[in-house]
């Protein structure tokens, strides 16, 4: 075994500049923590990638091509386009929003409780707010990848007729929808002491959002007393924007502004509460 010169391990006067470290942490701390979360995801890189590819392929084959055949023959094109084209951008938005519900529940719990992961970096120059934002940023980057893959699969299926310059906007739109649901969820998860509420969220929030947000049929096709689910659902707001991007569905400026405001508003409120909760909890 090599013996080390332990004098080099500790501060000797000519070592690193600690003041400088604090400055760098203040400037880039969010990114430093995001790096750690991404590193952790790398252990699951293969499953994440397989999932990112297999999911759109399976959905588009089953719902777009399979079910689409029936729908197109039965009721005729929905929204003026083939069912595959109609459903594809909505599926992109739904799947990233569904995925965010996994990323912003158990991993947050693990940060505060199970593995106490957040308590390591709080003793470094990072602030709790940077840990909250770093976690959020890493998750969003994951959805950048997942959204890009989904979009490429859409192109391959010919399911994004607006052309790639416009249709690539489905990727940031998907990320924004994921943020609008993920940020408040992160804030909520940060207040909990165990994870048993998460299965309730899955059943009573995520599933209804998936089914009643105009993903498979236009919101207008549902009885009016169910419309409110769409109005408060990031999936619906995201889907409306994504349909415009991917095949040029009708969308007024007013509605565009409304959808964007809703999604950005939910994101901002979520982030604000997350930062507050992380700070309160990690500093008490």
């Amino acid at each position: 075994m090599t013996e080390v010169d332990s004098t080099r391990l500790v501060y000797s006067g000519d070592g690193p500049d600690h003041g400088d470290m604090a400055v760098r942490a203040r400037r880039s701390g969010v990114w430093f923590y995001a790096e750690t979360v991404l590193r952790g995801m790398r252990a699951f890189a293969l499953p994440i990638l397989l999932y990112a590819v297999a999911q759109p392929v399976l959905y588009l084959v089953a719902l777009g091509v399979g079910l689409g055949e029936l729908v197109d023959r039965g009721t005729g094109p929905v929204g003026g386009v083939d069912y595959l084209v109609f459903v594809a951008p909505a599926l992109l938005v739904s799947t990233v929003v569904m995925s965010v519900s996994a990323e912003m529940t158990f991993p947050v719990m693990s940060g505060f409780k199970w593995n106490r992961l957040y308590y390591g970096p709080v003793a470094s120059p990072l602030e709790p707010s940077q840990i909250a934002l770093g976690h959020f940023t890493a998750v969003m980057l994951r959805f950048l990848l997942q959204g890009l893959v989904f979009w490429l699969v859409m192109l391959a299926f010919g399911a994004a007729p607006a052309g790639w310059v416009q249709s690539v906007l489905v990727v940031p739109i998907g990320m924004l929808a994921a943020a609008a649901f993920g940020a408040p969820l992160q804030a909520y998860a940060a207040t909990l002491d165990d994870g048993f509420q998460f299965s309730l969220i899955q059943r009573f929030v995520v599933m209804p959002m998936f089914l009643f947000s105009g993903t498979f049929f236009p919101l207008a096709a549902m009885p009016p007393y169910l419309h409110w689910i769409g109005w408060i659902s990031p999936v619906w707001h995201g889907t409306e924007l994504a349909r415009w991007a991917s095949y040029g569905a009708d969308l007024s400026w007013g509605m565009t502004a409304l959808h964007l405001t809703f999604l950005l508003g939910c994101t901002a409120v979520g982030i604000w509460f997350s930062v507050r909760t992380y700070t309160r909890r990690l500093r008490s």
Binding site: P16, M21, R39, A123
Partner: peptide
């Protein structure tokens, strides 16, 4: 700290490197 809070999903060496990153190294 009193309770270990190492990142169990990372390897031993990575734990040191990632922690150093928090100091902007």
């Amino acid at each position: 700290p009193q309770q270990d809070n190492l990142d169990e999903e990372l390897r031993v060496r990575e734990n040191l490197v990632m922690y150093g990153r928090y100091f902007g190294m």
